[in-house]
Write a protein that binds this DNA or RNA. Structure first.
Lengths: 253, 253
DNA sequence: ACAAAATATTAGGCAAGCCTAACTTTGCAC
DNA sequence: GTGCAAAGTTAGGCTTGCCTAATATTTTGT
């Protein structure tokens, strides 16, 4: 079995198809062409190559869907994209459209190891009591014209206060256990308990929803089912009844 | 005047040539080929394109040097490379060879704005009393298997101590003014005074050696002259007599 | 100084990825 | 159900960037 090596271009096609099929049932060549900023004839060629590699289900004039394998590869690409974009926006305070376009270029160059480090870094910044989101706000300030020292002093004073309060309360940080179905979109939760069993359990396990991992609830569908969550850059859909079986610590924003 | 748009490939050639000409007088096609992992005939083609764009001085069988413009573009590429690599190594704790190879891919995708943010972020991490190098060490710890909370608690306790000591001493941080010719390779200095004048002053000004910027002394040539320093990712060479006219605050490592 | 070795260039070819133009197929309106 | 517009495909061409093989120039050793 040859190790799959996809060109940047084919990775892009796969990514675009992924974004279409999570919304529609199947992708149409015309939409792919439009999103890729490319003529329709180029799409045909790309589809043939992807089909050869068993990443899309495709035959001429037929519907376009992702195979199981294609789905996995696409999610990997999307994950790289999202992690980079997230880092640019949340940590470097780059504006969204630039973050997106640069992430789109860089996603092809970056290794899994580096992406993992990026995610861990973002987690670390958000969780470490020395850093955290208020510290990152200091970075915005640092990027301005004025000297940053005032802000840092104010910021550290507050850190000390929080730290002492937490020491007294005996609690680690401000942790409160919640079930995943209780949280609202946008919240982040660090998983502590997972009562899922059987196939579902293993499936989510594989996708990174493990004890200790941090997930973000992205979006709740109109009728509250399914719920989309983000784990280490991967997007997963879960049913409400499954969410009920997962507990974690709600992280402050 | 058309806005120069260089392909990734040509940027790579330029970068390789740069690295050769800062060591030798002129580049030889063979060395370029070897560094680029490419056959010599490909180099000839690339050189012609670069010469057309007025980035290298080249005619068949002749010596290869960079033009003024080529030097500027090359330094820009090298800077992008170094900043990314630096970030991967210092902040994400990626090992050098991987950092280098990924930086080499990504350097073509990244905008100036993002590179500036990366440099500022590294500066910020190193200077902000809430973060700093000891905090970044916590990130290594966080990447391990064990929970990171202990380390963070120890780390913040120390931060509080340092902070209170600094408050008492009335000093901002541990700042001590030095002249740039006094520092040893590896040190970082935040510029406070610049007594250079005339052409030299303007030249360095343009290259980012301004009041408030942080420079790192990279390397001192055998006879102590010139000294190579790094400003926001750019490498500059200064004569010792010029260094004498620049003062700054020595930053702790 | 001159042949042999090393280095550089040219010519021609190939793959990837895009294009335009001409064509087929699909599906919707009537 | 027919015909026409929209969508999709094929054919052929162009550019980039690499290759090999053949040729040209420079350098080196004696």
């Amino acid at each position: 079995m040859s190790e799959m090596v996809l060109s940047k271009s084919l990775e892009d096609y796969l990514e675009v198809i992924y974004h279409i099929v999570v919304v529609e049932q199947a992708a149409k060549a015309k939409d792919i062409a439009q999103k890729m900023q490319v003529k329709a004839s180029s799409v045909t060629g790309a589809l043939r190559q992807l089909a050869e590699r068993d990443l899309v289900n495709y035959s001429p004039y037929d519907q376009i869907t992702l195979t199981r394998k294609g789905m996995e590869v696409a999610q990997d690409v999307v994950r790289r994209h999202e992690v980079l974009k997230d880092f640019f926006i949340k940590v470097l305070s780059i504006d969204e459209s630039e973050a997106d376009s640069v992430a789109c270029q860089m996603e092809h160059a970056v290794t899994t190891e580096i992406i993992d480090r990026f995610t861990k870094f973002i987690e670390f910044v958000e969780r470490c009591p020395r850093a955290g989101n208020s510290w990152i706000k200091g970075f915005d300030y640092y990027c301005g014209e004025k000297p940053q020292t005032d802000y840092c002093h104010k910021c550290i004073t507050q850190t000390i206060e929080n730290f002492e309060t937490n020491l007294k309360s005996g609690d680690e940080m401000n942790e409160s256990t919640v079930r995943l179905n209780q949280v609202k979109p946008g919240s982040r939760v660090k998983i502590t308990t997972n009562k899922l069993s059987g196939v579902t359990a293993r499936r989510f396990q594989e996708m990174g929803l493990t004890i200790g991992s941090i997930v973000k609830v992205e979006r709740v569908a109109p009728l509250g089912d399914p719920v989309e969550i983000n784990v280490k850059g991967y997007s997963l859909s879960l049913r409400k009844e499954d969410l009920d079986k997962i507990e974690g610590i709600l992280l402050e924003d």
